[in-house]
């Protein structure tokens, strides 16, 4: 394979197309790297950091970093996995994640990653921040569950590129801010897309909920990432 890039993940020989990110290349080689903020088709922003790997000894986010020839990637090592686990735990304590009451439970990517990493209790103390729930014509924005991944910011814009969802504030007060006027014009399809793209239960389409029975939800039986690993 002369045009292909050769690299290794945890000692396994892998091949990539030029220009592929570490995440894309790993996936193509049947290796799962967890992501939360990344979503196929959207520009990566490297905000959640869960896809961090050690590439040639340096920490990098695999969703933003192009793979290079001869790259040596540590992915499922105890250190990398422990650090990723810590990030998931940070997200759980930073917001208010009451899984039993959440309609995204069972289909939530944050929760699914916590299951995959067998998190029984976070190593960090719960912060119980005060956050709002906002209502818009077609949907609710549950800030308690928002992880500021910016998927909605990137995916849902008007035809002329105006942001319906944008970041507001900074630091621990960083929130998703919705443009009232533009949100009022969102079609039902767009609202559905926003809800589907949200990895957690922060964007909720009104008048539906708890449709899929327990046991049949996306992550009830098989861990997140198993679809990639079955591709080996």
């Amino acid at each position: 394979m002369p045009d292909k890039i050769k690299f290794t993940i945890d000692g396994k020989d892998c091949y990539a197309e030029p220009g592929q990110t570490i995440y894309e290349a790993a996936k193509a080689n049947g290796v799962f790297i967890p992501v939360l903020c990344h979503y196929e088709g959207l520009k990566p922003v490297g905000s959640c950091r869960i896809c961090s790997v050690r590439a040639n000894g340096r920490w990098m986010t695999s969703c933003t970093q192009p793979v290079t020839n001869g790259m040596v990637i540590e992915n499922a090592t105890p250190e990398v996995e422990a650090y990723r686990k810590a990030i998931i735990e940070m997200l759980f304590v930073e917001g208010n994640h009451f899984c039993p009451t959440c309609e995204k439970s069972g289909n939530c990517e944050l929760q699914a990653l916590a299951y995959r990493y067998q998190i029984m209790v976070p190593q960090f103390p719960y912060l119980f921040p005060k956050r709002e729930i906002e209502a818009f014509p077609g949907f609710l924005l549950e800030h308690n569950r928002c992880i500021q991944c910016q998927r909605c910011v990137r995916a849902i814009q008007t035809e002329d590129g105006q942001k319906i969802f944008a970041l507001k504030n900074r630091s621990k007060d960083l929130r998703i801010n919705v443009d009232l006027k533009l949100a009022a014009r969102m079609t039902e399809k767009e609202v559905q897309k926003a809800m589907d793209i949200c990895p957690v239960g922060a964007i909720l389409k009104k008048e539906v909920g708890f449709r899929i029975p327990i046991g049949k939800r996306k992550y009830d039986q098989k861990p997140i990432g198993s679809e990639v690993e079955e591709n080996k």
């Binding site: 009451f98 039993p100 209790v121 719960y126 119980f128 956050r131 308690n144």
Partner: peptide
């Protein structure tokens, strides 16, 4: 042993923590 969400993170009663 902490058994269940309430023991582990306060659970539904902890919704009043906000």
């Amino acid at each position: 042993v902490s058994v269940g969400e309430c023991a582990i993170m306060g659970g539904l009663p902890a919704m009043r923590n906000l």
